[in-house]
Write a protein that binds this DNA or RNA. Structure first.
Length: 504
RNA sequence: GGCGCUAUCGUCUAGGGGUUAGGACGUGAGAUUCUCAAUCUUAAAACCCGGGUUCGAUUCCCGGUAGCGCUACCA
């Protein structure tokens, strides 16, 4: 291909379900390639399977792509110079090309019924033969075929596969060759008149001047058929790049039984789009040197290269995705992370619903306090339990906690803390520190013996965030009108002491 | 069954005719912190098997094995 030819690539999903993680990875690689080359990224909807295609999936798919940050230059919603961008709107075009192929003797009508073909296939399998089409209708005289059709006989259209091996170049895998012995004349138009994927995909790619076909490697065995269509139609054959499959932990194709598999799933879990993009890019691609893991969108665009894409399948590693997500949660703009985190808290009923716009300083503080403890944002409400769900009895019912108070010293610490904070409302971190120092001196407790009892009293666990950050959050929260009341330090202390040492 | 694709730590990968085979996630240990998380340091951990080519193969070639895909009037 001439170097001045503009790169044109496409992502061509079928709107038959949620956007799968493997498919977005394909979309991402197409997009990165296009953006790097200053080319065009096209979105095309492949909905020739009317049985399974649904409009709602098409809308969601676009939303998911936008969320990830993938934008397209041409598509069903934005148009472009080679419309239509939805296959169902293009039936007459496919029909026209099919008629041309028939006229030129490169395709023929096949009158075999589905049942007949099924029987032939079974027979071939039983006899250990290649289950390919017999070619029975290949040599029917065109005039005869036309007559039978006119008489109302149903017929599909088949393409004649050439008598030579079919080879093509793949950027990821090198040269690939298929013997024509194993490729039977494929049906390109059903007897119902609906064209078949392997046929329309070629017409669309050719019509849209696609220069590089980047797609999943489940298409690799279909490629010879498609190359045959290109050649029959006299279209230039594009470059191919077949991306490996994404596997689940058990080595099987990543599917629902492995858990989250769609972009929507990850979004709902509170995976940041930049984390997902970064992770997906690393699944099958690595920069030279291979010693960097963190890539911003711009860095990916700059450094991505199809030549460096690995041909081998990759197991999806949720742990690594979480690691990247934690990284981006920590590194991301605090405003934005707080906003996103607040949405999850609001959804759980902990914050007023519709807290859109900018979140309050307090909410931001809550998110920042809890953020080091989560892999993904949907874990925030549970972690926020230390702020919203303080309950002394529950805390003491945990064996680990109860054990601490077997010690008289621990009880003394708690009593002293209660006495000293009785008049402190709100308690400040400075006063807290001073009080703890006093208790340390008075009771002789220090380190864990000093802090564990207090921590259990305040948040129901002996581990948790830094008191200096925690206490202001609790005290301020207790003053706020929230759907779930945040107990103040005073309330917590009183309640806890009552539970620990009930007094009439 | 046939055809195709693939094969480096548990996982993602870098590398490449001679290397202490590098990085990251995860795991173990240590440091730090009142604790946990985070952070930092550190350790263990890999070239699928068999032939061939070669002075020398993890690397190149062939075969095997395994995994995955295709083998549709699905996409």
């Amino acid at each position: 291909m001439a170097s001045n030819d503009k790169v044109r690539v496409r992502f061509a999903p079928s709107p038959t379900g949620q956007l799968h993680i493997g498919n977005v990875r394909t979309a991402l690689f197409n997009w990165l390639f296009a953006r790097q080359k200053g080319g065009t990224f096209i979105l095309r909807i492949e909905d020739t399977d009317v049985e399974r295609s649904e409009a709602r999936f098409e809308t969601q798919l676009m939303d998911d792509m936008k969320w990830l940050g993938l934008d397209w230059n041409e598509g069903p919603d934005v148009g472009g110079p080679y419309p239509p961008y939805r296959q169902s709107d293009k039936m007459d075009v496919y029909r026209g090309y099919a008629e041309r192929l028939i006229r030129e003797g490169k395709a023929y009508y096949c009158f075999c019924t589905a049942e007949e073909l099924e029987r032939e296939r079974e027979q071939a399998l039983k006899e250990q033969r290649q289950p390919i089409y017999s070619g029975k209708c290949r040599n029917i005289d065109p005039a005869e075929a036309e007559r039978r059709r006119a008489a109302g006989e149903g017929a599909a259209i088949r393409l004649k596969i050439p008598e030579h091996p079919i080879r093509f170049h793949d950027i990821v895998r090198g040269n690939v060759e298929f013997s024509n012995e194993v490729v039977s004349d494929p049906i390109i138009v059903r007897s119902s008149g609906m064209p078949i994927y392997n046929y329309v995909v070629v017409i669309d790619d050719a019509d849209m001047k696609i220069t590089h076909v980047i797609r999943g490697d489940d298409h690799i065995s279909n490629t010879p058929k498609q190359v045959a269509v290109y050649e029959a139609l006299g279209f230039p054959v594009p470059e191919f790049a077949h991306l490996s499959t994404i596997l689940g932990p058990d080595g099987g194709r990543l599917s629902k039984r492995h858990g989250a598999t769609s972009v929507a799933n990850f979004r709902e879990m509170g995976i940041l789009p930049e984390a997902l993009m970064n992770y997906l890019a690393l699944l099958g691609w690595a920069p030279s040197g291979g010693d960097r893991e963190i890539f911003s969108k711009d860095e990916l665009i700059r450094e991505f290269s199809l030549e460096r894409v690995t041909p081998s399948p990759a197991v999806f590693d949720t742990e690594k995705l979480h690691w990247l997500n934690r990284h981006y949660i920590k590194q991301g703009p605090p405003e934005r992370i707080a906003q996103l985190g607040a949405e999850f808290l609001a959804r759980a009923g902990l914050l007023p619903a519709g807290a859109n716009g900018n979140v309050s300083g307090w909410t931001r503080g809550v998110v920042e306090l809890l953020t080091p403890y989560v892999d993904k944002l949907d874990q925030l409400p549970e972690k926020a339990g230390i702020i919203f769900n303080g309950n002394a009895k529950t805390a003491l019912s945990v064996a680990e906690n109860a054990e601490v108070f077997v010690s008289e010293k621990a009880r003394a610490v708690v009593r002293a803390f209660a006495a000293k904070t009785a008049t402190e409302s709100p308690l400040t971190p400075e006063r807290f520190k001073a009080i703890m120092d006093e208790i340390k001196a008075e009771t002789g407790a220090k380190g864990k013996d000093l802090f564990h009892p207090v921590r259990i009293m305040l948040i129901g666990s002996h581990s948790g965030p830094d008191f200096n950050k925690l206490i202001p959050i609790i005290e301020q929260g207790s003053q706020l009108p929230l759907p779930v009341h945040v107990k103040s330090v005073r309330e917590r202390v009183t309640e806890f002491l009552q539970a620990l040492e009930p007094r009439p």
